[in-house]
Computed example of a mutant assay.
Amino acid sequence: MWERYEEPLSLDEIANTAILSKFYFSRVFRNLTGTSPGRFLSAVRLHQAKTMLLETDLSVTEISYRVGYNSLGTFTSRFTRSVSLSPARYRTMARAGLTERSGPAHPDGGRRTCTVQGSIRSPETGCPVRIYVGAFREPIVQGRPVACEVLEGAGPFALRVPEGVWFIRAAVVAASDFPAPPWERRPLLVASGPELCVRHGHDSLPVRLVARPLTPLDLPILLALPELDSPRLPAPHVAANRVPSLTGA
């Protein structure tokens, strides 16, 4: 998928490459990545589209075709849903180094909220780091997190989320990258927790995250967690449910 994302890959073709039936392949793939082959391929395509939007002057239409979409409308709607900005606005704001502040991605709508307590461990990177922890509705890091926190190194965190099922994801970024252009900020390490069912009045087990290098099996990060923390803020901390823009690469 990473090498041939622009092609109209079918599940049968991908499964044949692994010499497995498509049903068994889909089950194994989901166990390893946390999502289906189709969702993973879509995430790879949108990730590549982000790079092209920032590093080339190709039109949005041309980029949509180059990442495997035959319909500009489909590409635009999926990009906007995943990245929280349209392709054109994403390009303009990210290149200008702008941010777009907003409230939580998913207002609780009257639902009771609960606090998810956790901690993250990270291997030594040789440089100061910032760690971005967010709660998402799906395994894919996309859209705005319902809650997030920015840490100045490994340690405890707390996220205030509505009742429901959430996925806790984190990225470790070199603090020396700031204020580098958004497209130059790349996670050094990532971390992910299991599916978390949060219910009011029921204590959930603490979330223990361990940061590690990215692998080809990791879902692409469709938003830039570093952009949760504007370089203009006085301190690198974003409290739960206080979510600035997500415009980076």
Rank of each mutant, 00 (worst) to 15 (best):
L188F: 09
Y24G: 01
S59C: 01
A88I: 14
I168D: 11
V210F: 07
E6L: 03
F167T: 06
I120T: 02
S82N: 14
P206K: 02
P187C: 02
S204E: 10
A240K: 00
T56H: 03
E195G: 08
C114Q: 12
A249N: 15
L98I: 03
A191N: 04
G201R: 03
R78D: 12
D203W: 10
V44N: 03
N241D: 10
P179L: 03
P220I: 13
P123S: 09
S192F: 06
T61A: 11
L233I: 00
T215Q: 15
E152Y: 02
R78K: 13
G143C: 06
F25Y: 15
L11I: 14
T51Q: 12
P206W: 01
E62M: 13
Q117A: 13
M93C: 10
S77L: 03
F23S: 13
P182T: 10
V210P: 01
P179Q: 00
G103V: 05
I19F: 10
I140Q: 15
D203Q: 15
D218V: 12
R137E: 15
S119E: 14
F29P: 00
G201F: 08
N70L: 05
G68R: 00
R160L: 13
L32Q: 14
G103W: 10
H200I: 04
V129M: 11
V67L: 05
G68I: 02
R4Q: 09
K22G: 01
Y90K: 09
C127Y: 00
P194E: 08
S71K: 00
L209E: 01
P213Y: 08
F157H: 00
R78A: 13
W2F: 11
R4G: 06
L246Q: 02
A235H: 09
C127E: 14
N31Q: 15
D177K: 01
L219W: 09
T51D: 13
P107S: 06
L41T: 04
A170Q: 01
F23H: 11
G73T: 11
W2E: 10
V133I: 13
P87M: 02
N31Y: 07
F157P: 07
L9G: 05
G34V: 08
N241W: 08
E100I: 10
W166E: 08
A18I: 08
A96D: 04
E184R: 14
E184I: 00
C148R: 05
G68W: 01
P139E: 10
S122R: 03
G126R: 03
E195K: 14
K50Y: 02
E13T: 14
A49Q: 05
G143H: 06
T17G: 15
L214S: 12
V28S: 05
G201L: 09
L209Q: 02
A43L: 07
V133Y: 04
V161Q: 02
P162S: 02
E138R: 15
A18T: 04
M52E: 13
G201D: 05
V173G: 02
E13C: 06
A94C: 10
R144D: 12
V173D: 00
P8K: 05
R130S: 00
V161N: 04
